[in-house]
Computed example of a mutant assay.
Amino acid sequence: MKKSLLIFLFLLTIVVLAACGGSDEEAGGDNGGGEGSSQPDDKLAELQESGTVTVGFANEEPYGYQGDDGELKGAAVDIAKAVFAELGVDDMDSQLQDYSQLIPGLNAGQYDVVTSGMAITPERCENAIFAEPEMVYGEGLVVQAGNPLGIESYEDIAENPDVRVSVMSGTTEIGYLETMGVSEDQITNAPDIPATFSAIQADRADVTTATEMTLRLAMETSDESQLEFVENFEQPDIEGVPSWGAPAFHPDNTDLRDAYNEALQDLKEDGTVEELLEANGFDPDSNSVAAGEITAESVCNGENY
């Protein structure tokens, strides 16, 4: 009798363990996205249910920046708001972050999306997935008033090892400078554009570089007696210029990225994206990207980089 009872209990244990072992798969526990990741098919529904999307942004006007009222503003922000509204997500929880920490923060689950006119690059594509390009832009330079060192290109900086450059950390301009031969010893990082301007004004740097629109707008509220925008700047002939800006998503969230792209295409075709670019100081003719003109995939794989 005891032997029969033991056999029964043994068989019952096997059945229970088998049932537990299958529960993760049936519930989608192994989603292939890594520990702690959201299931790809659930992220959009999760945002729609909560009504809020968490956005990481760097303080770079006119792409994404914090206004005097504390609100998130800028062309990339306005476009994202319009797209998410189309997707049924009306509220943005905006979080300011250093540019270099946007993608790491995205992959750490701090944000659902990061958007600051971020340039699509093959390197960044290894760590995030990008929506289709929303804007295209070039580079610019700001120097000490009077441009005493005659800096009109990245080559000019590379040819004079005494030139000191202050650049916002995590931006593509650092790589551009190094590609053009500028030494790492010449480059210092700063948290934002005002800090790069302060470095020039305090004679800790001779020049800064960022996108043309960023520098032009920043100059409007800066002391022009100490700073000068280089009007005859020679755009570097290197991969990555011009830059194609787009939001970035966690690699697991392809469903969210794809839904974003569908809504974005509709807003491009009806003229909304051009209107939002123009409202933020961009030229809709030269800074907008028509639907299907350039794809994120083509930039990621180097075809249009």
Rank of each mutant, 00 (worst) to 15 (best):
M168C: 09
G70C: 06
A202L: 05
K43Q: 15
E60W: 07
S50A: 13
L256C: 10
L264A: 09
L215V: 08
P284L: 08
S243C: 07
F130R: 02
L9H: 07
I294D: 03
Y65M: 08
T211E: 06
G117M: 00
G181I: 06
A80R: 01
L215C: 07
V136H: 03
V83G: 03
E297P: 02
A75E: 05
I187G: 10
V113W: 05
S169W: 00
G21A: 15
A210N: 04
S183E: 14
A195S: 14
Q201W: 01
L215S: 09
D285L: 10
G64W: 01
V77P: 01
I79K: 02
Y176H: 15
A80L: 14
N189H: 09
E234D: 13
D90H: 12
I129D: 08
F249T: 12
P194A: 09
S94W: 01
P247E: 02
T254V: 14
N147H: 11
C125Y: 10
L149M: 12
A290G: 15
E293G: 07
S37A: 15
V77L: 01
L227E: 12
E262K: 15
N147R: 13
A158K: 11
E60K: 06
V53R: 04
C300N: 13
Y154A: 04
L87F: 01
I151L: 14
E178P: 03
T13A: 11
R216L: 10
Q226M: 12
N127Y: 02
Q144G: 13
P194Y: 01
G175E: 10
E123A: 15
T172K: 06
T214Y: 01
G33T: 13
E297S: 13
P191A: 04
G74D: 02
I7G: 07
Q48H: 01
E239M: 13
G170Q: 00
N304S: 14
I129V: 15
Y154T: 06
E71H: 11
P161I: 08
E155I: 11
P122Q: 13
L96M: 15
T214S: 10
F8D: 11
E35F: 00
D203L: 11
L264C: 11
T209S: 15
E297Q: 15
V89C: 05
D162T: 11
G109D: 12
P133N: 05
V89A: 03
L276W: 02
V142L: 07
A58T: 03
A27E: 15
G28T: 11
I193E: 03
E184Y: 10
L87S: 03
V241N: 06
G302W: 00
S37H: 11
K73S: 06
S100N: 06
N31M: 05
V136R: 08
P242V: 07
N31I: 05
A108P: 06
F10D: 05
D112V: 07
G292P: 03
E278G: 10
M1R: 13
T209D: 09
S153P: 02
T208I: 08
L177W: 00
A75Y: 04
G138L: 02
G181W: 00
E297N: 12
G181A: 10
C125E: 11
F8Y: 07
V53H: 00
D42F: 01
D283N: 13
A210M: 04
L47T: 02
V289P: 06
L276G: 03
